[in-house]
């Protein structure tokens, strides 16, 4: 187990240097390769974890996932990159929600302490928002969903209210984890919030939204790390969460917008859409 931690530390280093190098044109490609090497180390080392005893699901899942990932990455047109990133990001966020759900399912709820339950709830909440939000972003860029602003009157207030309710459900879940209804309400509401928050945002702002969702998926992964007590997940997720937020901000500035303006910009567009 100690050896695993040391390899996790190495992988973390690769991620940090990788992200750093991705920020400069001359070193960007090597940065990406370093990061992927870090990922490979993390995955291979984890397979030696004593807790892992069954490999049939692992092998089947990785083969299927890799096949789909390679196919999609090879096929995609250069002009369609942002929506491809959105889809990948959605899957990552969804995976974090599933990891938290899986850990909660396989263990007796009574052994979770409050922190474990709160992070489980947050992982499901943020991961699910990322999942559906990313797919809506994809649909908008692809033109499946109207690129303009689709919003109900007062949509922003509705979204804020729903988010507050979702956070309340996380709290309720932490107090009473064996009440199934709360768990499913939280899951469903999170998926709905992802749809409703991205839907009102105009197509031109989508890259910024995807970047923000990327930050979310990092935080979701980090929360899943809390649930599992896994350092590598906590650190890598936090790195992506923070770096993604900064990048989102930089992208907003490049467009002469503020993040608040992008997210809540539908205020002005309500009358047109309604």
């Amino acid at each position: 187990p100690n050896l695993i931690q040391i390899f996790y530390l190495i992988a973390t280093g690769f991620f940090i240097v990788g992200i750093k190098r991705l920020g400069s044109p001359a070193t960007a490609r090597s940065g990406n390769q370093l990061a992927s090497l870090g990922m490979l180390i993390g995955v291979v080392v984890t397979l030696f974890d004593r807790e892992i005893i069954a490999f049939e699901f692992i092998i089947a899942g990785m083969v299927i996932g890799a096949f789909i990932g390679i196919f999609a990455a090879k096929k995609v047109q250069m002009t369609a990159m942002p929506e491809m990133v959105a889809i990948f990001n959605g899957f990552g966020g969804g995976a974090s929600a599933l990891v938290a759900w899986g850990e909660f399912t396989r263990l007796d709820p009574s052994i979770f302490d409050t922190q474990g339950l709160v992070t489980t709830g947050l992982s499901i909440l943020i991961g699910s928002i990322t999942f559906t939000g990313s797919f809506i972003a994809f649909g908008k860029l692809k033109g499946f969903i109207g690129g303009g602003r689709i919003a109900l009157p007062g949509q922003n207030y509705i979204n804020l209210l729903l988010t507050a309710i979702a956070l309340g459900l996380v709290g309720w879940f932490a107090v009473d984890p064996e009440y199934q209804l709360v768990f499913w309400l939280l899951f469903g509401l999170a998926l709905l919030i992802g749809v409703l928050t991205v839907l009102p945002i105009g197509g031109a702002d989508m890259p910024v939204v995807i970047s923000l969702l990327n930050s979310y998926s990092g935080i979701a992964a980090s929360m899943a790390g809390f649930v599992l007590g896994n350092n590598l997940l906590i650190i890598s997720g936090a790195l992506v969460g923070a770096a993604g937020l900064i990048l989102t901000n930089i992208m907003c500035k490049a467009m002469n917008r503020t993040l608040i303006n992008v997210l809540f910009g539908a205020f002005g567009g309500v009358s047109d859409a309604g």
Binding site: F15, G18, I19, L22, A28, G31, N32, A35, S36, G38, M39, G42, V85, F88, N89, G92, G93, A95, N214, S217, G218, A220, A221, L232, L233, S236, G237, L239, V240, A243, G244, L247
Partner: peptide, 8 residues
């Protein structure tokens, strides 16, 4: 690239 890392 950062998104791929969040696949951790």
């Amino acid at each position: 690239g950062a998104n791929a890392i969040s696949g951790i």
